[in-house]
Design a protein around this nucleic acid. Structure first.
Ligand SMILES: [Mn+2]
Ligand SMILES: [Mn+2]
Ligand SMILES: [Zn+2]
Ligand SMILES: [Zn+2]
Lengths: 156, 156
DNA sequence: CGCGGTAATGATAACCATTATCAAGTAAAC
DNA sequence: GTTTACTTGATAATGGTTATCATTACCGCG
């Protein structure tokens, strides 16, 4: 008897929803429909920032799903390989994942080295600087990561 | 030979080698002298870019050292905690380490997602952009990481 | 529909970088 | 030289991630 909250965190990022985008991309790729994958896609769609595979798994299980941890990892790997998911390494040995928005909108992370908290930030000048570096180097740059490490407000 | 600077920041060791800088810092911290640590410090001093703990260990063993892998990890952790070593996470589940130069000079990395190659690059405009972000956010920023991912010249 | 081929699943074993443990070794204080 | 406790190297343990495998179930085809 689990009363479900009517309160839903829909993180509508303006244009096309990531959920629909990902579903179409998976269909186009020719994968079969499965409840395990649908569940992980739904979980990702509801995230504002990054979450680890185990966090996603725990959340799904406590919501009544019987999905296995292996399916969570498999789906994340699949989506990551398709460019639908961004993988973030905060340096604690745990990979975190968040949806890659089709319009290119994204953010980077502030990591507290004391308590492990992760916050997001966005900065156009930084993006521009990265873009210029990418054009200059002898390397085809597909993606980039930025992490600022230090102490959060609470730990400072 | 121990010229002591009473009121100086950590950045005014211009021209001094990282090897000497690290040795002085360790002595000041009060650690005992040990061959295992000296060997790791020497190995770090001799590398231009990052290397994993296991790479450092293998290199030392093939050079005749009998150092154990645990001592390599221990020394890297000690130096990292003292701010003498920078830890880099390229996303393959292996931490890499490189000396932190006392004058603040540093670089960031291009990571080939095909062959795993790591190259270094340096960009002042990018550093400036990061500096501005660090001043703007409600977070004390001590360090930062940038990784550009894609395909190296050979894999392109 | 009802097969049947096979992608997908979940439990679990294996993997592997890193960390903890501990008896033995050793630098430095006394 | 003796003492103290820091350090070491081997090895066990840890924990996130990946591989394995028997079972399930999606879906094209007749
Ligand atoms: Mn960016
Ligand atoms: Mn920098
Ligand atoms: Zn914190
Ligand atoms: Zn390459």
């Amino acid at each position: 008897m689990s009363s479900q909250h009517a309160h839903s965190h829909d993180h509508d990022h303006g244009g096309e929803s990531w959920d629909a985008h990902a579903t179409v991309a998976l269909a186009r790729k020719g994968t079969r429909r499965s409840s395990a994958r649908d569940t992980v896609v739904a979980a990702l769609a509801g995230q504002e920032c990054c979450a680890s595979a185990q966090e996603i798994h725990s959340r799904l299980r406590s919501d009544g799903s019987t999905i296995g941890i292996a399916s969570v990892y498999r789906t994340l790997e699949l989506l990551h390989g398709m460019g639908l998911v961004t993988r973030i390494d905060t340096g604690d040995g745990v990979a975190r994942f968040e949806p890659t928005h089709p319009d290119g909108a994204h953010h980077h992370h502030l990591v507290c080295t004391t308590c492990g908290a992760v916050e997001a930030f966005q900065d156009d000048a930084l993006e521009e600087a990265i873009h210029r570096v990418a054009d200059r180097v002898d390397f085809r740059v597909d993606a980039h990561d930025v992490a600022l490490r230090g102490a959060c407000r609470a730990c400072r």
